[in-house]
Write a protein that binds this DNA or RNA. Structure first.
Lengths: 119, 119
DNA sequence: TTGACAGTTGAACAACTATTCAACTATAAT
DNA sequence: ATTATAGTTGAATAGTTGTTCAACTGTCAA
């Protein structure tokens, strides 16, 4: 097994620990997906939308009025939330109603709030 | 109570829902902090660092070798994690050891993984 | 005190992202 | 058909962010 080229200017200090940690780490791709998921939650507009939809199904205009933003801005963010499978929608005439498609979100929010309230 | 200037080009569709949701929403500032917290988790380098530190205390060189990145890049990310109160450190001679300062992280990661594994 | 290595820091750059704007589609009502 | 409103979309812009690079500090050993 040839050593990969190492780009860091380090002597390895604790090879045993590095090896042990490396073994127990999740797949590269899974960690990538995970951080992508948190990236979606990491914007206050999207966080507000998700919080609102957890309370009630809402249409784009409702959300725009609630957050005092344009329909366009809301719609762009809803598209990202849709891509991340966090919201679903149904059409009723001219109106499109959005709602949460996942019930993990609230519990993730709660745990997050615990953290930021702690300190 | 004068109506605030509304920047969206909407008729309100469901005023009752908007009002109800508005009442139950957390403070603007709290939601901002919350999304800032998720923003920190929303980068794969930081997610890897946190995951590694959950396994074991590690020094900067260890992390650099593990993730095949420069000490500088790691150090920059550790600074952000420090600012977010997610990691703490202790110095021992020339070596700085980092470890998790919060035990919510693992459970947030687990819940996040549930979500991305679901679909 | 000099050299070596661990780690930090600030500036710079490239890549990314949230919002705006204008133009568009879809549906309903007259 | 025409008009009006809900919503979507692509391009553009301004702001943000991750990594690199080079210079720096801190600690130890000779």
């Amino acid at each position: 097994m040839p050593k990969n080229e190492v780009i860091c200017d380090c002597e390895v200090i604790h090879e045993d620990i590095v090896e042990k940690v490396k073994k127990n780490m999740p797949d590269e791709s899974e960690l990538y997906d995970l951080s992508d998921f948190f990236k979606v939650l990491g914007d206050s507009t999207r966080a507000k939308i998700l919080w609102a939809l957890d309370e009630s199904e809402m249409c784009v205009c409702d959300l725009a009025v609630l957050l005092n933003m344009t329909k366009s801005a809301i719609s762009h963010q809803l598209r990202l939330l849709k891509q991340a499978n966090l919201v679903k929608y149904r059409r009723e005439g001219k109106v499109v109603y959005y709602s949460l498609s996942d019930d993990h979100i609230k519990s993730i929010f709660e745990t997050g709030l615990e953290h930021i309230r702690e300190k």
